[in-house]
Design a binder for these strands. Structure first.
Lengths: 218, 218
DNA sequence: ATACTGACCGACCGGACGGTCAGTTTGCGC
DNA sequence: GCGCAAACTGACCGTCCGGTCGGTCAGTAT
């Protein structure tokens, strides 16, 4: 586990290496580790099965390389999560909006990581929890803690809970996206941006002190 | 798919049949369809592999039987979701509390169904969306629609969205439970009942019109 | 006794799996 | 052009997979 399981990992030297990674991430994200065969990856990548073993030591090493690449690309996504301009509420709305959009833009990667994160027991669960999810989580918590210091949060509202709710709803919305075409779940069907807006309307109204009543407390 | 794929399905006549179902639901919920072998099921159930084929026509038939049994047991769970006594807000809090508790009480079953529901593409996705998830969803929507008619919901708050948020948060909380032991996600760590309370504090405050301001609108 | 049934088993099958290896092709510094 | 490593291939291996088959055995109705 601690030894080097891959030979060149996320930075393949050749075109074939890149094709293998591309094919593997596509297949693994759709069908999971057990559902994918090395023959299938080779076919999808347009190379021979042996060639995969020239680049990666084993199926597990290939999977691990993809997980690492995915985790890294998602970590970089966190960097682009604009906390930027505007007041507290606008920053939060922007964060939720961008976060949800990023989930769908990196659908394959996200599905791959979520599958592993929620699969019960996984060696990489700890690492991913700390680095990938944790990064986003801490970022969002930071915003809420600033708001709390500024006296914008209602009494008894925990920044950690706030972050959990927003990230949880976004992830659930992403995960259950395919299911929304079936009744009665299709009764709630709108563009992603509108979902984010309406969701934040409710959430923020539940968390924040109304503008008219600020700094009334001690 | 339309033909009968199992011989006795969810109501096994013999002790062996029951043992097979028990073992299968345990293994499938932990490792998924591809991760489980019929030899593994036989070993876990304490019967021969051939015996499984005496009771079930194929691996897929066994899986389907388990999915149906799980879906049914979860559908029955919906019936016990007390909408009962108390005012609107108390009914909602009770619903969320009982729903979350049920998820953990039926953890294996829930994990099995969630895995299938969120796996992207599945033949049973439609059926399960309509019957299992849909049942809970409609029930919760019904409560919210009653509240809306009674003028308890803030303007622009959609009952469907409300139901989505509560169910989504509960499911996400259940799914991510194992991850909570790792930092920084462990910063938000409390008993399930307390989570449900605090979560509903925020959500309901965001959805409902405060008691003092009711029926002010036209 | 006989005939029949459902529960159950061990041995076996073809095929797909992950992985290996000897050998060929390709690209590149010299 | 030459040498050499990296890229790449097809044939092959042992193992495990889902599934089948012939048969045993207890119970039970005739």
């Amino acid at each position: 586990m601690s030894t080097i399981l891959m030979k060149n990992a996320a930075t393949p030297h050749s075109a074939g290496g890149k094709a293998i990674l591309d094919a593997a991430i596509r297949l693994f994200s759709e069908q999971g580790f057990d559902g994918v065969s090395m023959r299938g990856v080779a076919l999808e990548a347009g190379v021979s099965k042996s060639n995969i073993y020239h680049h990666f030591e084993s199926k597990e090493a290939l999977y691990l390389a993809i997980m690492q690449a995915s985790a890294q690309s998602l970590s970089e996504m966190v960097e682009t999560l604009a906390e930027g301009k505007g007041d507290f509420e606008q920053r939060l709305r922007k964060f939720a909006q961008v976060h949800l959009a990023h989930l769908f833009e990196n659908a394959m990667t996200v599905r791959l990581l979520l599958r592993e994160l929620f699969s019960g027991e996984s060696k990489w669960q700890k690492i991913m929890a700390e680095q990938v999810v944790g990064g986003i989580f801490e970022r969002l918590i930071g915003i809420f803690e600033n708001g709390q210091k500024a006296g914008l949060l209602r009494a008894g509202v925990d920044p950690g809970l706030c972050a959990t709710l927003i990230l949880g709803i976004d992830l659930f919305y992403f995960q259950s996206y395919e299911m929304k075409k079936y009744p009665p779940l299709n009764r709630f069907d709108r563009p992603n941006e509108q979902f984010s807006e309406e969701m934040m309307d409710i959430i923020l109204h539940g968390m924040l002190i109304p503008a008219g009543q600020r700094s009334l407390e001690s």
